[in-house]
Nucleic acid binder design. Structure first.
Lengths: 190, 190, 190, 190
DNA sequence: AATGAATGAGACTTCATTCAT
DNA sequence: CATGAATGAAGTCTCATTCAT
């Protein structure tokens, strides 16, 4: 095992265990076990449990960030850019239900208190998407609503259907993603 | 204190404490204290901690249920009925941020696992709203999307903005509720 | 077991265990066991381990204090009062080797840091003995030395021989106590 | 760094850390760090932690021993020899408060159990001082008291004032050392 | 020989639950 | 019925020691 692998293994294990059992049912001992690491080892890489959890969040955020950036249609119309972001986010969390489950547990728990200031998808993306929304609003393509409302109209439903997919309520294929994203656009556009 | 008052006091206290500190930071001793009840007394009314938490959920659900039923425009057009439900739900959680916060912590935690089968607002309402959506879909007023997607498009954003309001991101007045609800309708309608 | 007995049992157990094995070798689990008390019970009476240890100190201090006060020859000459105090202290710790051992471990450990400001036998007695020494110095009965030195000349040797007794180096009978106390007096007097 | 330097560095570091933070607060990792040595390296030179601590004691003992031997007035009268020893010891620990602090923590802790059989300043000196006291007693210059008591009357106060000095209770200049040593002599002499 | 990452036993402490009063 | 003191299992974290490099 190479340097840094253990750190990553711990983060992954925590992510997995929290997604599965919640912050309850995520004792450090279990995390250590799943990471194939001694219990004490965790504390060489992290200050305490909270730090591991915070790292899980960062890790998720980065993955989402990366997905959005990839093939982002810079300079293209607002509508096209929105469709990209929304589609990518939905697909991303459809493929990574663990990330989604962790995120939801994290977000409104006291653990997430520090990060809650930052909107849904972290700093970098937020700026990107915020830019997108502000531009759309200025050009009178989008409804004249506060940014948080625009965020809510876009990502509220997407996260929702990804969860429904993860739980088995819904078979979320690409066609359905597309349709839902279009519906979100209907909510946003003038 | 009359019979049943203690039970209610316990549920309220748990709701309060969980909303404030999360499932962590909600020891039975603190709940007992806030309920002005002996720690042992709780166990005369509830099997265990999980049962208290489940009762909190039920309690929230009932309040939301009641709000929707009140002045529900039975027999009126789909659009009108939707606007009623959506507006009432948004206002309700705007006024009861504690309920909202509990709900969010509960919903995707393992505690909520049993209830997750039942959609957003519990059995009774679900049927009501489900009916509404099915009818709208049949009449080709609403998009031809699976029910969970219709739910997501409606309540995903609403819950989202209520939280933003609770956290202070947003000043959610009646005008804004109305606008958001209209936007949700745009997402739903053909 | 009556109210308060558990608290006392815990203090006694800690005193015993620390005297025997040092602050190392004094895990809360062992203390609980010796006190015939559940591990968690300790924390109903004490904030944490340090608080238990602090209580041990107080307890010892009080016993010593009481011994000195008992039949204290108030108003009698300096010499007589000194002989009383010194004799009583020596006998006291001869009879309570556990107290002595704890005290020595405590005194110069970081645990005792807070209390170190207060001289050897705590506030009340310190004042009593300080008074005695100051009076003796003023009346030119005692050497003109700083108070801490007078304390050192008196109690340094006494504590020393009590430990030697406890360890078995010395058979400390009343005769020997008397002789040692007289020798201390020789060190103090002009 | 030459051979043996590491060993010494470890002993010094342990001495320092224990003096400062007590046996608690003296993890091997911190000792290794202060010694500029890998944690594992310590175990090339010492069996275990206890062995390091024992070496600290030996080291202190040797320094004290050396101080006493230096310019020891061999063959001179008992009184003169006593004054030398007592003065040297007091000055030594005044100058080496770390040694004193370690010694006090060590002496009555279980760590010191093995060494406790050997009186105050270790084997070599003990013999020297024992000889001195026995001679003085035989010649009826000193009081007819057991050796441990003579030790107590001499070194009990001295150690005491050195600590008071270290803690800041007392400004222990050479004049005061001299006076205290004289007072000790008063306690010893017939 | 030296290192320091890794280990896991064990320390302190919390808290859901029980039961004598 | 109500209480809250008591319990002990379980959680988080530390640290003496080992061993592959």
């Amino acid at each position: 095992m190479e340097r840094g692998d253990k750190r990553e293994a711990v983060v992954d294990a925590m992510l997995e265990v929290v997604a599965e059992y919640g912050f309850h049912g995520a004792p450090m001992s279990l995390v250590a076990e799943r990471a194939n690491v001694g219990a004490g080892t965790i504390y060489r890489y992290f200050e305490d449990k909270d730090a591991v959890i915070a790292s899980c969040y960062q890790s998720i955020e980065e993955r989402c960030h990366a997905a959005i950036r990839e093939r982002y249609p810079e300079g293209r119309p607002v509508r096209e850019r929105f469709l990209h972001v929304a589609t990518v986010v939905a697909r991303h969390f459809r493929e990574a239900p663990r990330d989604l489950r962790f995120l939801q547990q994290f977000h409104d728990s006291p653990y997430g208190a520090d990060v809650r200031r930052e909107k849904m998808f972290g700093q970098g993306d937020k700026d990107l998407v915020r830019e997108l929304f502000e531009e759309g609003r200025t050009q009178q393509i989008l409804k004249d609503l506060p940014l948080p409302v625009l965020f809510a109209l876009s990502f509220g439903p997407l996260v929702h259907i990804c969860r429904d997919h993860a739980v088995g309520f819904l078979e979320l294929d690409d066609r359905l993603v597309e349709q839902t994203v279009e519906a979100c656009w209907d909510a946003l556009k003038r």
